[in-house]
């Protein structure tokens, strides 16, 4: 269970002009919501604050005011414990994949969990097989396609068996074929999945949709009405 209680995120931004002083801008909030549904989608325009919302959920971004709790753990106080519970999949796998080969990258996740070196290799291969990358386990990461790299990033996150998976536009960089593969894998996960997305088909399959605009949650509910509200919002020209 994820609880947001009046969470606000602010940031320093450079001042205008050459010598303007830095300003504090509000990126998101206040947001109050309790997410218990198995599939939650977050939609919104570019720069609306939906990524910031995703980052709040595993403590990558801390609220400037209010609080965020996952299964009762406060992200500001128990950041490390929260991140063990909440896996995070980024848009760009190149930022997330660290080691030169898939099997080594997944092994790195396991290393952190304290899995002994002897077992790491086998368990890493198992995790790769689950996303269909068994035959690519020893190839250089650069030889994988963008879609395969995203599957690798997913395998490395799932290997740590998180209770919740937060995905920040996991399919935005993928072509239609890979999008289907990733969507199918995400759909079959037993975990709670919170997915930030531009893909309205994916959002329509969620149990609950949050629409974020200009740093605020402007609609929250079942996919049908929420996506209608989002479409109406997007019908206007960008400012």
């Amino acid at each position: 269970m994820i609880e947001l209680d009046g969470a606000v995120v602010t940031a320093y931004a450079p001042g205008e002009g050459r010598r303007g002083a830095e300003r504090v801008v509000t990126l998101l909030g206040p947001v109050t919501a309790t997410l218990t549904e198995r599939r939650v989608a977050v939609v919104g325009a570019n720069g609306s604050g939906k990524s910031t919302l995703a980052r709040l959920l595993n403590g990558l971004t801390l609220p400037s005011a209010g609080s965020v709790r996952v299964d009762g753990l406060d992200t500001a106080r128990d950041g490390a414990a929260v991140r063990r519970r909440v896996g995070f999949l980024f848009t760009d796998p190149d930022a997330q994949v660290v080691m030169p080969t898939p099997v080594e990258d997944v092994a790195l996740s396991l290393r952190r969990l304290g899995v002994p070196a002897r077992e790491r290799d086998a368990r890493a291969r198992e995790a790769l097989a689950r996303v269909g990358l068994a035959s690519r386990a020893d190839l250089p990461v650069r030889a994988l396609s963008g879609g395969q790299r995203q599957l690798l990033a997913l395998a490395a996150v799932l290997a740590t068996e998180p209770a919740v998976l937060v995905c920040d536009e996991p399919t935005t960089l993928l072509d239609l074929r890979w999008r289907r593969v990733v969507d199918a894998l995400l759909a079959d996960l037993p975990q709670q999945v919170v997915q930030v997305t531009h893909d309205l088909d994916a959002a329509a399959r969620a149990d609950r949709v949050l629409v974020v605009d200009a740093g605020r949650v402007v609609h929250d509910g079942a996919p049908g009405p929420a996506l209608d509200a989002y479409r109406a919002l997007m019908a206007v020209e960008p400012a």
Binding site: N58, L60, G79, F88, F90, A95, Q96, V98, S109
Partner: peptide, 17 residues
């Protein structure tokens, strides 16, 4: 920018806190 994305990912994956 890439370094900070990488730092985020390391934190998110729990590799470094």
């Amino acid at each position: 920018g890439r370094a900070r994305d990488l730092g985020e990912a390391l934190a998110a994956r729990g590799i470094v806190d």
